[in-house]
């Protein structure tokens, strides 16, 4: 590993720890008083939304294909993990381990589904693929409404509350780092090339289908992780939560933040998922405003607020300490 990279990763790690420290400071020292549980909930939802939006960004921003069924994959993660933890409810597995099991089950089952859907569906492109993703998510929703094991149309409840905000933060960081490393490697390069021109990509020796299915599967897998977190935070859910509306909400977050930008996804997801909670009293006006902002952004900044810009802690530090060497810094 090059030395400057080592330093960079170390600095970023410290940055991540610092944010965690801030989180602990606000949530665990009683500084927020009675509000703390409410805030903790908002933070948990924001964290899992970051996973949802970033993973959707893999498909949409980096691979350049719409998916309007991401909430469907989320529900697969939510239900599969819940079924397993419900079955293990009477065992003496400690909560943390059970949480890890839930995440892994959600990830694996959803990845398999993503793979199975991706192989045939990714032969289609653009609007047609978007429609198939909607159709798949709807089929999943209907199926979960009918299977007895998923509640048979009623609320599936009694799921253990395992999604502690600290765990969720760690999981979020791991997920985002994995996706980031994936994109910043030969795999991500190939995926971006496919987005730009799939014919040129295959003429450059890229197996387009392979890389597309791979990306779609990874994207689905992380939606599954988010689903598992969601289920074990809410402790009860119905399939209709994971509707087409939910999927399109995530898609708008991706686009608003900036398709092809991790920074955009992270900020977009945190702001847009926390905002509704904070402005609860103005719920309908808020959504009205939101849609207007969305249209305005599309008209005046079609690439989203952050475009493909990435925040870099190193760059900020260099600026602050005046050590700007002017080198193009990508990581």
């Amino acid at each position: 590993m090059p030395k400057n990279k080592k330093v960079e990763y170390l600095i970023n790690f410290v940055g991540i720890l610092a944010v965690f420290g801030i989180l602990v400071f606000f949530l665990d020292t009683g500084i927020l008083g009675k509000q703390v549980n409410y805030i903790r909930g908002i933070v948990t939802i924001a964290l899992l939304t970051i996973i949802m939006v970033t993973s959707l960004n893999l498909t949409t921003g980096f691979m350049g294909e719409f998916s309007l069924g991401h909430a469907g994959f989320m529900s697969i993660g939510a239900y599969s993990s819940s079924i397993v933890t419900l079955a293990l409810a009477d065992s003496n597995i400690p909560n943390m381990l059970l949480f890890i099991i839930a995440i892994i089950v959600g990830a694996v089952v959803t990845a398999i589904m993503g793979f199975l859907v991706g192989i045939p569906a990714l032969r289609l492109k653009g609007d047609y693929l978007a429609i198939v993703t909607v159709a798949v998510a709807e089929i999943v929703r209907v199926a979960f409404c009918n299977f007895a094991i998923t509640g048979g149309g009623k609320t599936l409840s009694g799921i253990k509350k395992l999604s502690d905000v600290h765990y969720v933060y760690v999981v979020m960081i791991i997920c985002v780092v994995i996706m980031y490393m994936f994109i910043r490697s030969r795999f991500g390069r190939a995926v971006k090339a496919i987005r730009e021109d799939y014919i040129a990509a295959s003429s450059s020796g890229i197996n387009v289908t392979n890389y597309k299915v791979m990306t779609f599967t990874i994207s689905a897998m992380f939606a599954g992780v988010a689903g598992a977190i969601y289920a074990h935070y809410m402790t009860a859910m119905i399939p209709n939560t994971f509707s087409f509306m939910k999927s399109s909400e995530y898609l708008t977050m991706v686009i608003l933040g900036g398709s092809g930008s991790f920074t955009g996804s992270i900020i977009g997801a945190s702001v847009l998922s926390a905002l509704p909670e904070l402005l609860r009293d103005f719920a309908s006006y808020r959504m009205l405003m939101y849609s207007v902002v969305l249209v305005l952004v599309m008209i005046f900044r079609p690439g989203g607020i952050f475009g493909t810009y990435e925040f870099s802690l190193i760059r900020v530090l260099k600026k602050v300490f005046g050590k700007n060497k002017g080198g193009a810094d990508n990581e």
Partner: peptide, 23 residues
């Protein structure tokens, strides 16, 4: 501006009409 923008704008208008009706 590309199909992505068009799609999102359409989703946004859908959201707008529904919430306008709600208000």
């Amino acid at each position: 501006a590309g199909s992505m923008s068009a799609l999102i704008t359409a989703l946004a208008m859908s959201l707008f009409l529904e919430n306008l009706a709600l208000v």
